[in-house]
Amino acid sequence: MNYILHILVMLEIYIFLALSANQKIGLSGLLSLAQAVFYGVGAYASAIVITKFGFSYWLALPVAISACVITALVFSFIAGKVRELYFSLATLALQIIFFSVCYNWIPVTNGSYGISGISNPEIFGMKINTPLSFALFGGVVVSLVIGFYVWFLKTPISRLIQATRDDQIAVLSLGKNPNYYKRVSIILSAIIAGVAGSIYATYTTYIDPSSFTLDESILILSIVLIGGAGRIIGPITGAVIYILLPEVLKFLQMPDGIAANMRMILFGLLLVLIVRFKPKGIFGKFMIQ
């Protein structure tokens, strides 16, 4: 039972990450290779203030969000300067720099040893420290984010963000600043990924740089592109496929050692096939041309 609940918690975290990446890719058309940076900033900021300053989770969360917003401002500066492939390459560079900093800034991040002993959150005096309570907590927060997107996608600012994606000059002709809408989109994406990071850190109670690598960023991007960018259902579908794929392989009685590689082979193959034959993804609305 605990195993199923653990799968559920990981699914919720990946839905979070996929929705955050969808904000940048699907709504703004910014192909970022550094979504794991925001995930990592959220996780590290929470872990550091909880373990070094004794903050509670609810005090650590605003710190994590603030750190993500500051990081997002760096990304939005880049998005204002370069576009398309060069934006992707700049984010790739930031991803590797972030990993280097996490690995080497030992007084703060504890390097490759990581940070352990991160305390669990509490709500109304109840500690969230079992897989069931985390699954419920994650479920509530994911529902809130999905509810937010159902509302947000109907707002004028969301339409302007999508208009910036489709035609920057048209947005300029309306007297609007495209860079402002890119900035809003990147900040929103960063906040959601940061919250996912803080939940991940308190769930596992231990983090190290290996969870926030380029591979992780590529994985998050793949989840969105396979599920389909631009709609809420797309990233959720991508996350479900990614998390449930190993379970299907186990059902087929594949040994764990083989299943781990087979999962990535199938996922990579699916990504290539999607790009080749169904560029909008399974449920997507927007296609990177």
């Binding site: 192909l31 592109l225 990535m264 082979i265 996922f267 193959l269 990504l271 290539v272 790009v275 560029p279």
Partner: peptide, 19 residues
């Protein structure tokens, strides 16, 4: 297709080959 599409395809191919 633009360069971003071939970049994504290339990433997928890399993941498949390595695994």
């Amino acid at each position: 297709s633009n360069q971003s599409i071939s970049l994504i395809a290339s990433m997928g191919l890399y993941v498949v080959i390595v695994n």
